[in-house]
Each structure stands twice: as structure tokens, then as C-alpha cells.
Design a protein around this nucleic acid. Structure first.
Lengths: 106, 106
DNA sequence: TGCACACATGGTAGAATAACCATATATGCG
DNA sequence: CGCATATATGGTTATTCTACCATGTGTGCA
């Protein structure tokens, strides 16, 4: 494989990896309908604010979200909204897997 | 968050996580145009066959690929093809990120 | 039956991850 | 200025991941 392809591959994997954590996926989904500040995100989740902040940093570095500081708050938003359109397909994968496991029991 | 939602969230994250590794993403892409056996996949990559086999097992457990044994070979194929349709969007994330980083240098 | 091939699985060491706590930084208000 | 609020960052520890090697299992052929 060429270096160029390998670099692109790693970049794509890192985006998927960033979304491949329950908390980060939840954060991304929370931002689906508009920007939110860290405090809004943190209050509805049972985790330390520093943990939420670090997860958001990972999403930011991966390019999934963008940041804007306004006053005391830092607002995050989805940068490329199409990634959320991916979820129905992901759910289809889960359904297919569940059906297969049920079939194994018969 | 309800338990049901949390379970679904974790399931979705695990699918994305499975794809969030360069080797596994490459394997999935190799299967885009039809099934391949482990030997075909392993010969074009610089990794131990056991490593490839374990990555394929992770993809299988996540529900991304399905398996069929025929003779001595084991053939893998993409189970829910839509998962590969989102790569252009993932690439868009990468481009947006790259452009932003260039802009930071100005 | 025995051997070679194709995979899978167990074991292990090193790297990466993730959660928390503590602390630093920046902002607005009194 | 001094203080409270909002985030980010550094440190630490436990867990998880990943790659390799070694070995086990199943299949077809001589």
C-alpha cells in the first residue's frame, strides 16, 4: 500500500475511532440539533467534567466537532453533519447481528 | 439515560470502534467488492495471519462481516453494505480538518 | 493414515485508553 | 482587585488493545 493511502486510511480510522466510544457518540448525538456548551453536556451525564472535556477534545482533534468560546462558556457543534446520517446504518448492523444471534438459538 | 438507550449507544459505539482501526477498516474496504478468504486478505498486508484473523473476528463479533467456511478456506464478506457508503463523509471530515489546520498557519 | 495448508486461539509484553482528582487558566461580576 | 464559574490540562492507576509467537483444530490430498 502506498504511503498516501495509508495516511488516508489512518485518518479515516481515527474519525471512526473517535466516535467509537459510548460517551463520545452520545456527545456527538447531543450536538445533532445545535451547539451546546460543556456545562449543558456535562449536567446530563454521570461523569466528571474533566472527562467530558477530554472526550470533546478527542472529537475536536478528530475533526468531528468545532469549538467556539463565547464568554465563560465553550460551545461545541458538529462540524460535518453527515456523520450523524450514518447512525441508521449502524443500527441496521446491530439489528442484523441480533437477528443472527436469535437464529443461533433455534 | 435509560438502560435501553445506553445499551443501544454502546452497541453503536462498538460497531464504530470495530471500524476505527486502520487494519480493520482496510479489511472492510477490501471486502467491499465481494467476499475474500483470509489468505487473500493476509497476503496483501504486512501482518501476521493470526493478527488478521483476530481483526476479522472483531469485525465479525461487531456484526460488520459474516463468515462462511468452504473447504479449507474461510470467506468473509460485508454483512450490511451501507457501512462503506459513509466513507465520503468521513473523508469530508478529514478535508475540513485539514483546511482548518492550514488556515491556522496563516 | 499422515502430511501440508488454512485459520483460530491462547499467551505475553508493551502501548494506548479512560476515569478520576488536583490544579491551572480565563472570564465576568461585585 | 478578589471571587466564583466554566473549561482545560497534568498526573496517576487500572483496564484494554494490539502485535507477535506458539500451538491447536479442521480439511483435503497423497
Amino acid at each position: 500500500m502506498e504511503q498516501r493511502d495509508r495516511t488516508l486510511l489512518e485518518a479515516k480510522a481515527s474519525v471512526l475511532k473517535a466516535l467509537g466510544h459510548p460517551t463520545r457518540l452520545w456527545l456527538a448525538e447531543q450536538l445533532a440539533d445545535g451547539e451546546k456548551c460543556v456545562c449543558q453536556l456535562a449536567e446530563s451525564i454521570d461523569a466528571d467534567i474533566s472527562t467530558v472535556s477530554k472526550h470533546l477534545a478527542i472529537l475536536r482533534i478528530a475533526g468531528v466537532v468545532s469549538v467556539e468560546k463565547r464568554g465563560k462558556q465553550v460551545y461545541y457543534r458538529i462540524k460535518v453533519p453527515c456523520i450523524l446520517q450514518y447512525m441508521p446504518c449502524i443500527e441496521a448492523v446491530i439489528r442484523a447481528q441480533a437477528q443472527e444471534q436469535i437464529a443461533c438459538l433455534n
